[in-house]
Amino acid sequence: MIRVQNLTKRFEQFTAVNNLSFDVAPGEVLGFLGPNGAGKSTTMKMITGFIEPTSGQVSVYDINVNADPMAVQNIMGYLPEGAPAYGEMTVLAFLQFIADVRGLKGPLREERLASVIEQVELASVLNKPIETLSKGFARRVGLAQAIMHDPKVLILDEPTDGLDPNQKHQVRELIKGLAQDKIVIISTHILEEVSAVCSRALIISEGKLLLDGKPDELERQSRHHNAICLQLAQEHESAQQALASIDKIENVEALPDRSFMLFPQDGQMLLPEVVRWLDDKQWEVENIHLEKGRLDDVFRQVTRAKVV
């Protein structure tokens, strides 16, 4: 597992990471959430041994990263921010270089190369220089190098940044497919990604850990948790006030097209009550659904609170 203890990084006056502590166990996909400049990348750079912490320490499977960075790097795959790669190299030559560095030889080398090329679908661009590739392909080359040696630990800094929705989906499936016995840490500022792939999320801002929980636990903290969104079939006079009078409904927001968002008190489950009420009133409903909660609510709530 990965153990981060009191990790701090200062750049002159600026504190990028401030006394961060957390553990990640095998099988977990940890999502790092936070606004730009929150310290996500800096933390990843310290976990991978690229930079040294000002204080605190990181250990990966009981190996201290500072004491023996190469031992850690051997069991780790890393996609740095922006997926840097040697632009003048062809995709194949670049991946062969990575395979060599990873100590892969003979049939195993060929097998791993073929496997990652298939996994991230690079076959069509193998002989093109990386600098001529689209952003999506370049990102996949970065992913391919990170998983080349089938590492136990995978650190991915914004793995889906710049990809189109299909490619995003594909990369997420790839990450989910990898995860079973691995430790995966991804950073992102796309919140849907956390719900889609992560088993756990950390929200950090200004280098500090603000929230740590499963995505659905975090969603539960959202004011949208168990909120009911409904669309009426016809206009009703002062519908908003009427809806707000339903028992235990705290607040109603009017949305366009005869739609309303009903917020329950304390995130209670009020769907049956609301449906009964609508029945009594004989109001026809075109559309009704229950909100699970919105991560971006929680995200804004906790990160804004700090800034304001």
Binding site: K45, T48, G49, F50, M70, Q73, N74, M76, Y78, P80, E81, G82, P84, A85, Y86, G87, I98, V101, R102, Q145
Partner: peptide, 14 residues
């Protein structure tokens, strides 16, 4: 300049 140094320095090369 290109940031590949981060890749190079986090591969187990030394």
């Amino acid at each position: 300049q290109m940031g590949t140094i981060e890749l190079l320095m986090t591969l187990p090369i030394g």
